[in-house]
Amino acid sequence: MLEIRDLVCGYGTVTALKGLSLTVAEGQLVALVGANGAGKSTTLRAISGLVPARAGSIRFAGRDITGADPRTVLGHGIAHCPEGRRVFPQMSVAENLALGAYLRRDPAGVAADLARVYGEFPRLAERRRQMAGTLSGGEQQMLAIGRALMARPKLVLFDEPSLGLAPNIVERMFAVIRAICDAGTTVLLVEQNAFAALELCDDAYLLETGRIVLSGPGATLIADPHVRQAYLGG
């Protein structure tokens, strides 16, 4: 479904991705793990068109989307749930969710998806008129996830959904993400929390300083001696 080949990206003189290739098959939950600064977020930002590709190609559902702007990428069915949640703090929960469906022209479908998001996250329904900036970290993450789903995407990119959350909330987030994938939406998950991500995913890629150094089923990566030593604390 998503196919990245030899992607090179950077900021100024820094090259963040040095020829990255990965594939996400339809219906799968694929994890991209690695240390801080390995280029995980840059990969997602390049897919969404926030960072231009210097070389290489990104194809989605048979289309070349290399160099497309974020609006076009979203229009093709890729939603992006950014790192640090990035909800709009001075807007209500309802307005944040409305922005998730900004490009959609089917009010009935949007209303149905809104009901689904509120059903999945009753806390958001209770606080629909509240400013998003006043929500707790966990609630903001739920909002960010709900907002991404409001686009009714074919593929969702999750960037560090566990960042800065309490352990029991993290567990809940991962369960939600698994459920999203099981319901038929393909997921590409970027995580620093390697163990949780590898347990959760179907396939995984390990990124080190801008290159994929290892890939395979999550269970295989968990058992890999290099991964165990470098990312799972022995």
Partner: peptide, 23 residues
């Protein structure tokens, strides 16, 4: 209005507004 929503989103966080499909 929808334009106003896009304007406020851009005001608060232009990158994330772009991710929502705001031009």
């Amino acid at each position: 209005t929808r334009l106003g929503l896009a304007m406020r989103a851009t005001f608060q966080d232009h990158d994330t507004a772009a991710l929502m499909g705001v031009n």
